[in-house]
Simulated assay, not measured.
Amino acid sequence: MKIQFNTDKYVEGNERSEAYFASELETTLARFEDKITRIEVHFGDENGEKFSLKDKKCLIEVRPAKLQSIVVTDHAESIEKAFRGALVKIKKAVETTFEKQKAH
């Protein structure tokens, strides 16, 4: 399972935070790792240099083998909070997708 991080020009990415976020994703989605080929995480600041509440965005896209991509987004005051919100959403979405697949 490959994990790729992308940031816009207003969000600074570094290896330490990427390692932490990757670890959290791997732990949360560990039971599905054989079914997931790639995960892309996009961080952004929707208002750029202007201040606004909940303007930080985290989009997580999970690409399961032989299925459509699963995409969730969360907005918060910080990148970390946006990531946490998106992580909860993607876990639920992935679980639901694979449970439906198992039922058929």
Rank of each mutant, 00 (worst) to 15 (best):
I60V: 06
Y20C: 05
C58F: 02
I70E: 07
F43E: 05
R31L: 07
A30L: 06
N14Y: 12
R38D: 15
D45A: 07
Q4A: 09
A22Y: 03
Y10C: 03
A76W: 00
T27M: 09
E80T: 13
Q68W: 02
E18W: 10
K91M: 06
V11R: 00
D55H: 10
D74E: 15
A76K: 00
C58G: 08
P64T: 01
E77M: 04
D34Y: 06
F51A: 13
M1T: 15
A93D: 09
L59C: 09
A93W: 07
H104A: 10
E99I: 05
I70A: 05
G13K: 09
I36N: 03
F98I: 02
V71T: 14
I3G: 06
K9G: 00
H75P: 06
D74H: 15
D45Q: 08
K91T: 11
L29H: 04
T96W: 08
G13N: 03
T27D: 09
T37I: 14
T37Q: 15
V41G: 05
N47L: 13
S17G: 03
K50C: 01
F21W: 12
H75L: 12
E95T: 10
S23N: 12
E12G: 11
T37W: 08
D45T: 08
H75F: 14
K56R: 12
K35F: 07
I70M: 05
V71W: 07
E77N: 15
F83L: 08
E12S: 14
N14V: 10
S17I: 15
E80W: 10
V88N: 06
K35G: 08
Y20E: 07
Q68Y: 09
E18Q: 12
R38Q: 14
E18L: 00
K50V: 01
E49H: 14
E12F: 10
K92V: 10
K54Q: 02
F83A: 05
H75E: 07
H104Q: 11
E49R: 15
L25C: 11
L67R: 14
K100V: 01
A103V: 02
R16F: 11
R31K: 13
I70P: 09
E49A: 13
H75T: 08
A22T: 02
M1S: 14
K102V: 04
F51G: 12
A30M: 04
I79M: 11
V88T: 08
S52P: 04
K92Q: 11
E33N: 15
K66H: 08
M1I: 15
L59P: 02
I3A: 04
T37V: 12
E24R: 14
S17L: 15
N47S: 09
V88G: 04
I90A: 01
E15P: 06
A86N: 01
E61C: 10
S17T: 13
Y10W: 10
V11W: 01
K89I: 00
V41D: 04
E46P: 02
P64H: 01
E15H: 08
S78M: 00
D45M: 05
R84C: 05
V41Q: 05
S17N: 12
K89G: 03
T73A: 09
E18P: 05
S23T: 12
A76E: 00
R16C: 04
A93T: 09
N6S: 05
V72H: 03
A93F: 06
Q68N: 14
N47P: 09
N47V: 13
S69L: 06
Y10S: 05
L53N: 14
T37K: 14
